[in-house]
Amino acid sequence: MTSAGVRATARIAATADGRGGTALPVLEGEGPIALRRTRAAGSEARVMLVGAMSGPLGGDHFTVEATAHEGARLHVGSAAATIALPGQAKGAARYDVRLTVADGAELHWLPEQLISACDSELQVGTRVELAAGARLVLREEQVLGRAGEGPGRLTSRLSVRRAGRLLLDQELACGPGAPGGWDGPAVLAGHRSVGQLAVVKPEFEREMPRAALLGEFAAITPLAGPGLLVTAVAPDARHLRRVLDEAARTLG
């Protein structure tokens, strides 16, 4: 028996509240994706993505849309790791993230890891649209398989546009059935965690941080516009987080 899978869209909109803080006029979860406002930190509004059930399963299509309007400061995290699992429905699961940040606004998109469980199949598409004066800190971490199991098939594409210009476009494809060599010496070389931290801010137009290595398996790379990308591979989620946290500290 097959079913169509679950479609669900969650929406967040953040605006400056006119008193130096950030309001959340839109905070709509749907189905398995619940949103919770947590305690604000200074002028920043904080939202937690709460997975009401584990997912996405095969055939599911989840979408999260978050917009930080002019002057807003929005921080989005998640309560726990997201686990891609095999499902009853045919085909891959999809998880789309659409992020929009206006001039003078700031978005920190810092969810917990995405775990690609054995036999799952998930396509993640993260698209970020930034105005010229927008600020972004975005972290993505992929873990290939739960403890003691092999990975599922995962395809994850991250693209960032700034002021209408493409700044970053990267896709990672891994797991059984992915094009060959994904676990070989050019791509992951047996590492089971891979992550990226993207930082974009207008100050980088004046002064870009220099390229730097963080050990043997991570690098800070300035992009062709006012942004940079930290790329890291690690044996597990804990090591990966430590490297990305260190990078975040280095970058202030």
Partner: peptide, 22 residues
């Protein structure tokens, strides 16, 4: 448009290239 072009990446090629350049 050009977004239809693939963007497949290899983390260790990027990291290795920065190490090599240094």
């Amino acid at each position: 448009g050009v977004d239809a072009l693939p963007a497949r990446s290899a983390p260790l090629l990027e990291i290795g290239a920065e190490a090599h350049a240094a």
